[in-house]
Amino acid sequence: MGFLDRLDKGLDPVGPDIMLGTVEDLLNWGRSKSDWYMHFGIACCAIEFMAVNAAHFDLMRFGAIPRASPRQADFIIISGTVTLKMAERIKRLYEQMAEPKYVFSMGSCANSGGPYWEHGYHVLKGVDRIIPVDVYVPGCPPRPEAFLEGMVQLQKKIRHQEIFRKREKMSPEDLKAIEDRKIEMEKQYQDYLADQKLKNQEIG
């Protein structure tokens, strides 16, 4: 796939080994094959993630290596029920990660609140309310195979990204749109928190 394919085709047995491609391709290819992750295991899904990580499913063959610190991680895996008490911490961890960064939401709880969507007065209904999610893996808990499929999807996404689109070169409209979106998300989150607080009071 991708970069190496091109190399194979262009390889001449006697001539010089020349391969044409953009630097971006090369970087993306490298990035997609060595994404280091920070695992933020919260609940049951974390146990399935441990199974993914262990010998039977062996996540490391995708080049994913666990890091304990958000500053060294390329993507963060949120696996489990995100409670309101936890939400702030997750947001802070996400902000500590270096760009480019990705978010992996594992399980129904992180996707949408899962089994706790209805009366869960202390459960955030989806981690995408506080941080932008790149890959959603459905299931309660997702099968390890489903998780690996998500991993492949993430690699695909990384491979087709434009990393050299510098912010300086962006049009003012685009920049403004990004800023607006940030403010909007922040507002949504605050509204949601306030909303939840009100509801909790009602419940007593």
Binding site: I42, T83, K85, M86, Y121, V123
Partner: peptide, 14 residues
């Protein structure tokens, strides 16, 4: 504790 309080008793009532 309380980072994973998932409202079990509330659910049990409902």
């Amino acid at each position: 504790i309380g980072y994973l309080h998932r409202c079990f008793e509330k659910y049990a009532e409902n």
